[in-house]
Simulated assay, not measured.
Amino acid sequence: MAGFVLGLAALAPAGAWVWWQPEPRSPGTGANALWARHQWVGEAHTEDEYRALGRLLRENRMTDVFFHAGPFEPDGGVPAAKYRNARKLIEAVRRHAPGVRAQAYLGQIRKVEGHGAIDLDDAAVRERVLATDAVFLDLGFDGIHYDFEPVYPDDAAFLTLLDRTRELTRSRGRLLSVALEQGTLADAAQPVLKALLPRTGGLRYPPRPTERFLKDVADRADQVAIMTYDAALPTRSLAGWHYARHTAWTLRTIGDRTTVFMGVPTYRPAMGWAEDLDGALRGVRRGVDELDRPPARPYGVGVYADWTTDPAEWARYRANWLPGPPENDGR
C-alpha cells in the first residue's frame, strides 16, 4: 500500500512536467500593477529618484501602483507622520508617469475570534477607516487598495466596508481595489478544513474566498488583485500549474465583472521552493490559454514587490509578459 501511495505521489510532478512543456499561446497584457514600499509616502525623495520611478513604471507598462500608506491603527486611523510625503509623491507620479494611477495601499491584520489588530465588526472602526480613506483621496490618490488579512467567505463586515468605501470612491471619481487570497480548491471543503485544521493564533486556516464570495467582492470593487504567490510547491512545473489553475478559475469567475491582477512574486520563498517570477508569468499565460474567450474586463499581473525586484528581473518580466496587445491596457 505504501508503495502504491508513493507511486501516486510521484505521478503528480511527472504529469505536471509533461503539461508544463508547451509554450503558452496567450500573450501578456498592458494592464499591470505594482505593490510599492512604504518609503515612497513616508520619506523624502529627490527629483532624480522620482524620475527613475516614473521611468520604471512607464517601461514596465504599469497602469496602477499600490503605494503602502498604512497600516491602519486598531481604531481605523493612520498617523499623519507615516505619509508626510504622500502629496509630493503623487505630484511626481503625475509629472513622470502620467496616466499611471497611484493608489493608497491600506490594510491590517483582521481581528478574528479575539486575535488580530483591527475589528471590522465594530461599526465605529469602519467609520474611522472611511474617514481615513477620505484623507488619502483628498491628498490626490487615485484609489484605495485594501489588504485586510485574513478574510473568510462569511465576512459580512468586510463586504459592508466595501459597500461604504465604493460609495466614497465613486463619489470622488476614484477606484476601489481589493487584495484577496487565492481561491478555494473546492468550495465544499472549506467548512471541513475549518473544523479539522489546527488554529494558529486563533485564526481558522485557510482563509480562501469561495466562488460566491469572490463574485461578491468583484461586484463591489473596480479591481481585484489575487495574492497567488507563496505556492510552496517543490517543482517549477507544479508551481506553474498552481498559477495557471488559479488564473483560469479567477478569470472565469470574475473576469467579466472587474479588472483582475494575478499576483506574481519577485522574491524567492523560504525552504528552497521552486516558485519564481518567470514560472509565475508563464503559469498565468498558460491559465489564460485555458479560457474559451478573453475576459470582458482588463486583466494582467500584479508584481510583488518593488523592493524585491532587481533590474534583471524587470528585464525578464518585460521579455516574458509585455509583448501583449496594447489594447488591453486597463485605462
Rank of each mutant, 00 (worst) to 15 (best):
A52Q: 15
V125T: 11
G107L: 10
P206L: 13
R170C: 00
L8F: 07
D289P: 10
G7S: 11
R164I: 03
T160D: 15
P207A: 14
V288W: 07
T308A: 14
A124L: 12
P74H: 04
A232P: 02
G201T: 13
V112L: 06
D147I: 09
F72G: 04
D163T: 04
G183W: 14
T165I: 03
R285C: 02
A231T: 09
W241Q: 15
P295D: 04
W241F: 14
A270F: 13
E211N: 08
D138W: 06
V65W: 09
S177G: 01
A232K: 10
A44Y: 02
M262F: 01
V301S: 05
E149K: 13
A16Y: 08
L11H: 04
G114C: 06
R257A: 10
R318Q: 06
Y50G: 10
G143C: 06
Y152V: 03
Q103H: 04
R51S: 12
W314D: 08
D133Y: 12
L196Q: 09
P74D: 02
L322R: 13
R316M: 05
W35I: 05
D310G: 15
R55M: 06
L159S: 01
G77K: 09
D142K: 00
G263Y: 09
L185R: 06
Q21Y: 00
W307N: 07
P311G: 02
L6A: 13
A315L: 11
A2W: 08
P79S: 06
G30P: 01
G116Y: 07
W20G: 13
A319E: 15
S26N: 13
L89H: 07
V303Y: 00
D75I: 12
Q182T: 00
G330E: 09
D154Q: 04
G3D: 10
L89Y: 13
I118P: 00
P79Q: 06
F67C: 09
T235D: 02
D138G: 05
F67Y: 12
V5P: 00
R128F: 01
A280T: 05
F66T: 07
A2K: 10
P298N: 04
R293P: 08
W35R: 01
Y205F: 08
F72L: 11
R172F: 12
R55Y: 09
Y152M: 00
V303K: 00
F158P: 09
W35V: 06
V93I: 15
P22W: 06
V125M: 03
G140H: 04
R282K: 15
T132I: 05
V284I: 11
L53R: 14
D154I: 07
L233M: 15
G42D: 14
R95G: 12
R128K: 14
Y105D: 05
D222G: 08
V301T: 05
A123H: 12
P234V: 04
Y317A: 01
V135R: 14
L197E: 13
K111N: 07
K111G: 03
L106E: 10
W19A: 14
A312W: 02
E275M: 08
F67R: 03
A2S: 08
H96W: 12
A186N: 02
